[in-house]
Each structure stands twice: as C-alpha cells, then as structure tokens.
Design a protein around this nucleic acid. Structure first.
Lengths: 205, 205, 205, 205
DNA sequence: CATGAATGAGGCTTCATTCAT
DNA sequence: GATGAATGAAGCCTCATTCAT
C-alpha cells in the first residue's frame, strides 16, 4: 500500500483525481464549445488522456454529464446554503441572490455547462432528463422562503411561484450573458437585480 | 411554368409554400425533440417530403436553422412593434411585456425552437452564431426605451442595460417553463412580471 | 416512372436488389469468417458499398441477421414443403431428409450462416434470440409427422420428440461438416442417414 | 516462496488453483452469456480477481479458451475411456453413447462452453481453430471402433465414417438442447439414441 | 503475485450532404 | 423540381492487452 493508493470511500486517490479532472475538462469543453460539440474525444483531449479513459471512469457519456450537474449543484447548493443560513424574508432573499450571482461570478463555466446539459440532455425516450418541473427542488425552496416571508408580513401578497420563477430566470440569464457577452457588467446586474427584488417583494404601505 | 406557379419576388408560389412548410416542420421537430435529435431526416419526414427537398430549398442545415430564427424573430418583432406602437415609458413597458408573453402563449413551439437554436447553433469556428452580445438589437431597443423613460422622468434611475437584461431573462425563462413544466401558469406569471416591472422601474417619491 | 423504379410491395427495384445483395454478402461473410468476424464493415466491403449503406437498408445489425435467418428459413421451408407435399409416414421421412440434405448440398453457406446466427445472436437482455425451445415450429412439424406415422402403424413406438431431435441433429451436423471438413462425403452421409432413419423408425415384426 | 506454495510440476499450489478457478469461471461465463459476451473482464469478475491476473496466467484470451477446450476434452475423454475400456462392438457403442450423454448430463456448462468456443474461436488468419476435419481424433476413434465391429461381424455393412458423424451429431445436438430447451428430456433422448444406434448398426439377419 | 490504470483498435450507428435519374 | 441512393465522417462504446507500482 503506497501513499498514492490510499483508499477513501472505496476509491483510490488517483481514481478520484482522474474523475475530478475529467469532470473539470467536461465542464470546460461544454462551456466553451457548447453541448453538441463537446464530444468524449474533445474532453479526453483536454484531459490529456485517451478516449477510453473517460469510458473507464464513467459508464457512458450520459452518466458523466449527470455527474457534472450533480457536482456543480452540490457545490453551488453548499455555497448558497452557507450564505443564507439562518436568514429569512428580505435578508434571505438578498443573501440568496448575492450568493447565486457570486457563485456565477466565481464559476461561470460551471454554470454555463450545467445550463447546457440541463437544456440538452435527454433520456433514451427523448424526454429531457433535467426538465424543470413543479417538483424542482431548487425552485421549490425559493418559493417556500418567499411564502414564509409573506406569512411573516415582510413581503407583499404576490404569487410566490411566479416570483420564484422570475427571480431564477433573472439569475440564470446572467450566466448566459457572462459567457457570451464580453461587455456584461455582473456587478451592476447584481445591484439591479437585488434592488428589483427588494422593490418587487416588499410590503407596500 | 404552370398556372399555379405565379411568381412573387423571384419565387414561385409552390416554392414559397414548400419553404414555409419546411420551416414550420423544423420548428415543430426542434421544439418537440430538442436540437440534437431534430435531424434533417426527421424534419423531412414531418413535412412529408424526401430529405433531398430540404437540401434543395436550403443550402445546408445551418441556413435552415438561421432562417427559422429570422422567421420567428420577424413575426415576433412585428407583433410586438404593433402592440407598442406610439407608446413610451411605463405604457410601453406594459405593452412590451404583455406582447412578449402573449406571443409566447400563442407560439410556444416557435419560441422554444428559437431558444434551442440560439443556444446551440455554432459557426465553423465553434463560436455561437446568435450569442447575445452588446449589439443585440432586441435588447438594445428595450434598453433605449427604458432610457427614454428615465429621461422623461417616468422611471427611476436604474442601470438601463441591467434592467433590460433582467426583463428579457424573465421573459425568456417563461418560454422554457411553458414547454417543460406542465403546471406553469402563464397568466399568473404575466401578471407578476408586469407588477414587478412596474415596481422596479417607477420613480420612487 | 422509369423501368428501374417500378414498385413492388412498396419497395423499388433497386432497393430490393440491394437488400438481397447485402443479405447474400452477409451470408457469405458469416459462413466464411464466422459470426464474430462478420462485421458490418466486412459485409459492406464484400458488397462493394460503404458501411452506411447497410445501415441504410437495415435498421441495425440485429435486424439484418434476423432477416438472413428468416430468408433462409423461408426458402428452405418452401423447398422441403414442396418435396414432402402429400406424403406421410416413411415416405414423408425419406423425402424430408432428402430435401433437407439436398438444400444443404445446394446452399451450404446459407445453412452455415443461419447456424452461426442462431447460436450467437442475442437480445439486449443477453437471452438467445433463436434458442430452440419446445415451441420450435420446424421441430414441431417433424415430431407431428412422426407421431402420425406411429398412429398409422407404419412406425414403431419410439419417443417422437426425441427422435425428431435426433434426426434434426443428424441433419444439422452435416452443415457443419460440409463447410469445415473438406473430406466430408455428403452423398454417402445422406444414404446412411436415410438408412438409419428407416431402420430406427420402422415397425419391428 | 512460502510453505503454502509447495511445487508440483514447476507450478506452485496456488498457481494451479488459480488456473483452475479461472478456467472454471471462463466455462461458466461462456455457457451463460455466450461466446461474444464472455469478456476477460467478466471472467475476472466471476473469479473475483482483477483482469491482470487472467493475463498473468494465460498469455492471451485465445490461449485461455484453447485451454478450456483441452481441459474439458481431457476430462470427458477420460470418463468415456473409463466407461468403454475393454469393450468392442455393440457393447462399446452402448457404453460410448451412455458415457457421452452421461458426461453431458453431469457437465452441461462445460459442453456448452466448448461448443461455443469450437464454433467461434479462429486463428489470426480467420481459419477455425477447432474445425472438425478428417483428422478429428474423437471422430476417428469412434469410426475405428465401428469398423472393428463390422469386421467382427457384429455390425452391418454401413459407411463407418458417415455413421460416426451421424452419431456424434446426435450426441452434440443434445448439448445444445440441454442448455436452451428447458423441456428437453435427456433420459428419454438417451434411451432413443441408444435404441436407434442399435437398430441402425446391427447385422440384419 | 496482483492490481489499477491506460491504451488503441475496432464495432455499430447516426447524420448532413451529394448525385444520378 | 423531386427522389432515392450512397457516402464518409464522427460519435459512443467495448474490449484485449500492456505496464508501472
């Protein structure tokens, strides 16, 4: 047993490193070239390994892409959860939006890649694999927090579901801009989105 | 040359009909199957013609897809222009959003298809063909109208560019929801978006 | 409408010709190289066409192989049915075996290919696609004819099922020999098989 | 070299055990999954070892498969030789067929695996590795014993070669049935085959 | 001895495109 | 104008094999 074969969760050190490397290269390739052009060959090329290696670590391209999504979701979710811990109402909303756009600013490629995958990856039956539906947990959480703020009397009486969709749409659009529009000013956008959220949700006297 | 092939702009009647039919089937296929699965064969199948016909009318798949985008943009632009004609400031904004979401409600497949194409179609160099940039005419127009409203004293002093991006993002997200989220309530969303826009842009006393 | 595009059963003349050509080349390749080495590329090469053409005419390799089996079964069945028409008992058995071995002599590659496919082709679940089971129609027919001969008092009281399996095995083994054993004497084998069948089935005084 | 690695014929105890284990798992995998799906990875998985181990003990997959055949042939040959020792003529034939079908009943997977390998394994030139030819020792032995029986006046004057092929075919077909046809009655088949052999070979008065 | 890791060839399939008719 | 036919590239995947540790 050598130092580079230490086990952790059933996986060797090198295996975990390779997996992460491949995931990173997949994100990079998708963010840069788009979903359709991000072939396994391209991902392997960026990782400096042969095509077979990718298949060796992931049982199929779909699984790899799903892993990318799960990976980024996990990291983004953790960052946002940490930033919003213990907050409710307007304070939550501010922290939530700030954390979302902050993650975007720090990991634009990750978000871009996830967006591409979510929009394009389909199951064998042709149905979208990550289609946003009523049960979307991300959206559901935001909606619930908005509803809580309303019950606490902090927010006005808007349709929580629609407002949640609107705010997520405003967040998501930023990721697209960030990658393709070089003139996009994320800081200004963040300020304006937070102001808009504040004005659109606060209880009117 | 037969009697049923009257000329119009250098194109016979049947030719124009075929083109429109193919474009319509392309929209249908992309909206239903997604960008990657909408092959020329599938489009031809839906149009009830052979693959060769598609190639005959459009010099390459890319051109066909570009034409789909141009087509829908033209129709949507006309509808929105008609609805907002002569209006400025808050009145313009209301009419603009209402017309946008109205077009969405009337032509969800068109919007879905265009979204897919815009996100996926790339040039030979790999660069996005329709990437939103600073020169995006759609966005530019909205931005200008917002700026006009500010100068007229009707709107508060927000960053017009960011607000334009935000509102477009809020509009675009609705198209995605409309197709994949069966529980999405477009009417409620429209109301909430218009309320939000009103609250976020009006001059605060 | 030209002479080479005459329709027949929804298929053009060229299409039927190509299909038959591909089927023939598949038989040839499998008989010569064995199941595992008979790739689509090899089949296409023998047909003098590109790999894509095979996929153009058959929706997948499995379907092509299934078609080979169906094809040969149909032809062999027709030949045997014609040779045994109206016969029963020992006369049927003689004609049956003679027709079987005759078809073998005339189309050794076909039989060899079918044998390979039947033994190797598996479904997506890994289960054999043509596994001989109790419901095997070919075997069932022979068994029934043997039983009829017993009831007519022409045959002794053997186990009809076992005898059917035995005779089919004796027929099938000849196809293997014919291809791989250059010294195999089919005529002598035919004589001996018919003599054996006669001796093994006839009513003993 | 430890105490548990006593040498025998140049091979340690564990080495021989490993070889036998791998051979057994190869048989199992081929019998169950068929030739094409029995990959080294699958065989290694069933043996509970890594792929490298298989390569370590056998210099290539072909050699492993050849060894499987040799192994089963050796065991089957020994069993049959023991059962037929000292017998000739009809007595030999009865014992021979009984021992063959008995081995089949006791080791169906072995026979199935060998059948698959014999039918599929090819040399680099594409030629079958185990094709039955005129020099087939198994067949040759049976043929010789039949001839001896004829010269002893016990058998009628059939073509010994053809009869040998016929009987081997009747034996081999049972192995195929045994694996794929759940309703196959091996005991009944054995009885019928022995009766048939008796009737077909005995000297007619 | 044994393992995990990596390779590269080859297979099947899909698809945009071209061309003769 | 329109079609069926054919191509060839590219994609994903599986697998036997090799190698450093």
């Amino acid at each position: 047993m050598r130092s580079d074969t230490g086990r952790d969760g059933g996986r060797t050190f090198t295996e975990r490193a390779r997996r992460e490397q491949i995931l990173a290269c997949a994100v990079e390739a998708i963010a840069e070239l788009g979903y359709a052009r991000a072939s396994l060959a391209e991902i392997a090329r960026r990782a400096g390994v042969s095509k077979g290696v990718v298949s060796y670590y992931f049982p199929g391209k779909d699984r790899l892409l799903e892993q990318v999504v799960a990976d980024v979701y996990t990291r983004a979710g953790a960052a946002i959860a940490a930033a919003t811990a213990g907050r409710t109402g307007a304070a939550f909303l501010r922290a939530y939006l700030e954390a979302n756009l902050g993650f975007l600013a720090d990991h634009p490629a990750d978000i871009r890649a996830v967006t591409e995958i979510v929009m394009n990856l389909r199951g064998p039956d042709g149905a979208p694999r990550f289609a946003p539906t009523g049960e979307d947990p991300v959206l559901g959480h935001l909606e619930q927090m908005l509803r809580d703020g309303q019950q606490a009397g902090e927010f006005r009486d808007f349709d929580a579901r629609s407002m949640a969709v609107l705010l997520r749409g405003a967040v998501d659009t930023a990721s697209g801009r960030l990658v393709t529009d070089p003139g996009f000013d994320l800081a200004a956008y963040t300020r304006e989105l937070m102001a808009t959220a504040e004005l659109a949700t606060r209880r009117v006297r």
